[in-house]
Simulated scan of single mutants.
Amino acid sequence: MTAELHTLTGAYALGAVSGPEERAFRRHLAVCDACREEVRELTETAARLAMAVAEVPPPGMRERVMAALPEVRQLPPHAPAPRAVRRRWRISHLALAACVAVAAVATGVAIDARHRADVAVRAEQRAAELSAVTAAPDATFHTGALTGGGTATVVSSPRLARSAVLFHGLPALPDSHVYELWYRRDGAMVPAGLLPPGRPAGAALLDGTPTGADAVGVTAEPPGGSSTPTGPPLVVLPL
């Protein structure tokens, strides 16, 4: 049971542990320094990302976006989630939505209103996908430290066939190198996207599905990424 409790740090930090499992993990935290420190770091990451939504938008941005909304294709309606699931989403949704908000601000303000509305819709869809993965009933969380610094948590849902990575404390890479994600299938590393450059903390969906993969790896690659790893993985986390 103790070995299983070690794997709950990411889920606990995102508010996705409840009932007897939560009580058991709280007791475990009282005697496990490593898990306590890991939960503290992941919780701080979520809080910092949530605070990022306080960025002040450019003057007139709200009016331009609202004016363009009638021309943007509507998202299909969805049924409201049960109260228990919404409660589990709260922390992870704030953190992931904040990550998307920071990216939107970084795109600059010299784009027209319709483009802004399109970006907002896509950002909302991306945040919803990230939240769905972290809140999925079958989601698993695996956390590990990267060589050179920082931690990463892989969240995977076989039912949704999606995976995401939450990262914290990643040092800047030299020579404009980037952090690249990989699925490991039959011993081979398959590209699964890049982490947002220049950010020490955040979240990202992996490209493709985890079907057939047994692990997720992170490497440091030249600008733009690579088709095969150019060096040893900085971390390999099981799925």
Rank of each mutant, 00 (worst) to 15 (best):
residue 7 T to M: 11
residue 8 L to H: 01
residue 10 G to K: 00
residue 11 A to D: 03
residue 11 A to E: 01
residue 14 L to W: 00
residue 18 S to K: 06
residue 23 R to Y: 07
residue 25 F to D: 07
residue 26 R to E: 13
residue 37 E to N: 14
residue 42 L to P: 07
residue 44 E to A: 12
residue 46 A to M: 11
residue 47 A to R: 13
residue 47 A to I: 11
residue 48 R to I: 08
residue 49 L to H: 01
residue 49 L to Q: 04
residue 52 A to Y: 01
residue 53 V to I: 15
residue 56 V to S: 12
residue 57 P to F: 10
residue 59 P to D: 08
residue 59 P to R: 04
residue 64 R to E: 09
residue 66 M to K: 13
residue 67 A to P: 01
residue 69 L to D: 10
residue 69 L to C: 09
residue 70 P to I: 11
residue 73 R to L: 15
residue 79 A to D: 11
residue 84 A to D: 15
residue 84 A to F: 14
residue 85 V to G: 06
residue 87 R to E: 10
residue 88 R to Y: 02
residue 89 W to Y: 08
residue 90 R to D: 07
residue 90 R to P: 07
residue 91 I to L: 14
residue 91 I to N: 06
residue 97 A to N: 11
residue 99 C to E: 10
residue 102 V to F: 09
residue 108 G to F: 00
residue 108 G to Y: 00
residue 109 V to D: 14
residue 109 V to M: 10
residue 111 I to Y: 11
residue 111 I to W: 04
residue 112 D to M: 04
residue 114 R to Q: 05
residue 118 D to L: 14
residue 122 R to L: 13
residue 124 E to H: 09
residue 128 A to P: 06
residue 129 E to K: 14
residue 129 E to S: 15
residue 134 T to N: 14
residue 138 D to M: 07
residue 139 A to L: 07
residue 140 T to D: 05
residue 140 T to Q: 06
residue 143 T to Y: 05
residue 145 A to R: 15
residue 148 G to K: 03
residue 151 T to I: 14
residue 154 V to F: 01
residue 159 R to F: 13
residue 159 R to I: 09
residue 161 A to C: 08
residue 164 A to K: 00
residue 165 V to A: 06
residue 168 H to R: 12
residue 172 A to I: 14
residue 175 D to S: 10
residue 181 L to A: 01
residue 183 Y to G: 03
residue 193 G to V: 02
residue 193 G to P: 00
residue 196 P to N: 08
residue 199 R to E: 11
residue 204 A to C: 10
residue 206 L to Q: 01
residue 207 D to C: 12
residue 211 T to M: 09
residue 212 G to F: 05
residue 213 A to F: 00
residue 215 A to S: 10
residue 217 G to I: 07
residue 218 V to Y: 01
residue 219 T to S: 07
residue 220 A to F: 05
residue 221 E to W: 04
residue 227 S to I: 09
residue 228 T to K: 10
residue 230 T to S: 13
residue 235 V to P: 01
